[in-house]
């Protein structure tokens, strides 16, 4: 990849509801980032004025210091409104106030990406969600549910569930009564899971390349996260 190409990739912008989300590589020097911001913001003209801007530094370290500097730059050069950083899992700075602000902002700026259904999915029926799928009801044997992200069944899952389609290994499948015919997360598949003696909430996730099913209450996988995150 040429140096110029790399600089281009240092800043990308995408529309986000009523604001702009800007992805930056915090490992690039600040002046390169400013240059790149100029490149992507200039064509936006009046669209940038008073726009809310969320800076996304990905999983990279050290973005916090940049937020103020680049925020000032964007306000001065393009008249944007609020500038804030998107909260990222476990990578936030120690500043409680900043963290609280990031968290609040993240609620405002994300659109729901969940398909929520009530009722029973019957044999031969298939439900597919672009991202997360939430069903208040049961999934019968012979039925199929699939999602780009997580699958949550508030009832019994007796059919086939494919989460994280097609390659997201972070996705989970959770059901109050977990007895699927088959579970798939990303490309990883499991079948013939031993039946539990009585219904209780269990969830499947990928660990070291294999599907692991655990007691959801006991494992409490997301209870360890210190504050709510957008999933």
């Amino acid at each position: 990849m040429s140096a110029e190409q790399q600089d281009k990739n240092a800043v990308r912008v995408k529309g986000m509801g009523d604001g702009l989300c800007v992805m930056l590589d915090p490992d690039r020097p600040p002046d390169v980032l400013e240059e790149e911001l100029t490149r992507v913001f200039t064509p936006l003209r009046h669209l940038a004025v008073n726009a809310r801007v969320m800076l996304d530094f990905g999983d990279g370290e050290g973005g916090d210091a940049l937020v103020g500097k680049l925020g000032d730059f964007l306000r001065d050069s393009f008249g944007v409104g609020e500038v804030a950083r998107i909260a990222r899992r476990g990578k936030n700075g120690p500043d409680e106030r900043l963290r609280q602000r990031d968290m609040d902002q993240s609620w405002h700026h994300y659109r729901s990406d969940v398909l929520m259904l009530t009722g029973r999915v019957r044999s031969g029926q298939k439900v597919t969600a672009r991202r997360h799928l939430l069903i208040l009801g049961d999934v019968n044997p012979g039925a199929e549910v699939a999602a780009g992200g997580d699958i949550i069944i508030m009832g019994s899952l007796a059919g086939t569930a494919a989460a994280g389609q097609t390659d997201d290994l972070e996705s989970i499948v959770l059901a109050l009564d977990f007895r699927p015919t088959q579970v798939q997360i990303g490309p990883v598949m499991a079948a013939g899971l031993p039946a539990s003696p009585r219904p209780f909430p269990e969830y499947a996730h990928v660990e070291e390349g294999g599907i692991v099913v655990e007691d959801y209450i006991r494992a409490n996988p997301f209870g360890r996260l210190p504050w709510p995150e957008v999933r």
Partner: peptide, 14 residues
């Protein structure tokens, strides 16, 4: 019978 229930379920959906 499991297979009969499965088919009935399919038909009920239809």
């Amino acid at each position: 019978e499991v297979s009969s229930v499965r088919d009935a379920d399919r038909v009920i959906g239809l």
